[in-house]
């Protein structure tokens, strides 16, 4: 881990620890919890997209499958929430593993289309299997509990999600600096070269695809329990795009970028409601403008800016 990354991790820890003292109402906590969940998904997604160069426009599908697994297993089959979460994660792992090999041999726009198609199919199934999922109206989800302990207070939920996010960031940073992380970035740079140096590119891509899908599923489960409700929109194409946008806006191949992007795009709609009817116009325009001005994303773009100012002196 580089000095910059250690400093970033420390800063993140301080911010996460300080936030509960700043947030003064349940609504603010709710947003903070959503930021943590989205950030966790995005850190995983950024490993896949930013570091390994494999775009996915279907990860919301995995998020929703995790959420629905929790909803259905706890509600209709009386499973303990933790068991349902694990089962959902396992099911998504199996699904991701099965589709990974054929889909991840695709590149660029074709991979984008393949993952998009997968996500849309999942989303349509969630809409249509009304008996199982409740259809477009969604379904209620019983409260979460771990061995009898039931997080009810916002602070408890915040502790769970912030902890999950922090651990994910830490593990990701460890991975990136390792031989496996180098192999992932190498196959982004040149798949054939990586392959001739002993990197089993197919299995590396698959592993990462499965891991990021599982992370999304776990967050989907927690989201479903936290909000007490889940609808197929969580798995819709639009949500996949939102996740990718968080990654790209924050900065590709930047773990902290994914966190910053998730935070911004989760908070932005809450703030933008002041624009009423102009909300999506402002959102679309800001999105375009940011990507044109900072095509590498916020965090790498700002790091570069600071460096160039530093060298300029």
């Amino acid at each position: 881990m580089s000095a910059g990354q250690s400093a970033g991790l420390g800063l993140l820890a301080v911010i996460l620890a300080a936030l509960p003292f700043v947030l003064d109402n349940p609504y603010h906590f709710e947003i903070a919890i959503l930021v943590c969940l989205n950030a966790t998904v995005c850190v995983g997604l950024n490993l896949l997209i930013g570091y390994a160069g494999q775009i996915s426009l279907g990860h919301a599908g995995f998020f929703a499958l995790g959420g629905y697994a929790s909803a259905i297993l706890t509600l209709s089959y009386d499973w303990p929430p933790l068991g349902a979460l694990a089962a959902g994660a396992l099911g998504v792992a199996v699904l991701a593993h099965v589709v990974a090999r054929p889909i991840l041999q695709l590149k660029g726009h074709y991979l984008a289309m393949g993952t998009l198609g997968l996500g849309v199919i999942i989303s349509i199934a969630l809409n249509r299997e009304v008996e199982l999922t409740g259809g477009p109206d969604g379904t209620i989800v019983p409260p979460f509990s771990v061995l009898g302990w039931m997080p009810f207070e916002s602070l408890e939920w915040y502790a769970i999600t912030a902890g999950l996010m922090f651990v994910t960031v830490w593990l990701s940073l460890n991975l990136i600096g390792s031989p496996i992380g180098r192999a992932l970035r190498a196959l982004h740079g040149s798949e054939v070269a990586a392959e001739t140096l002993g990197v089993n590119t197919a299995s590396h891509k698959n592993l990462l695809f499965v891991a990021s899908a599982v992370l999304a599923a776990v967050c989907g489960s927690l989201y479903a329990h936290f909000s007490g409700f889940i609808t197929p929109t969580e798995g819709a194409f639009h949500h996949s795009i939102e996740l990718v946008t968080m990654v790209v806006l924050g900065g590709m191949a930047s773990v902290f970028g994914a966190v910053v992007g998730a935070a911004l795009l989760t908070i932005a709609p809450q703030v933008l409601t002041v624009f009423h009817d102009y909300e999506s116009i402002v959102f679309g325009a800001v999105l375009m403008g940011m990507m044109i001005v900072l095509p590498r994303g916020l965090v790498p773009g700002l790091v570069r800016l600071v460096q160039s100012v530093g060298f300029g002196r």
Partner: peptide, 26 residues
């Protein structure tokens, strides 16, 4: 945005589609 990565360009056009939908609703 010439020369930006494939994903960046995808996000730009998605931003445009959100903007256009919002404008149409308005």
């Amino acid at each position: 945005a010439r020369g930006a990565s494939v994903v960046t360009l995808i996000i730009i056009t998605i931003g445009a589609s959100i903007l256009l939908r919002g404008t149409a609703q308005l």
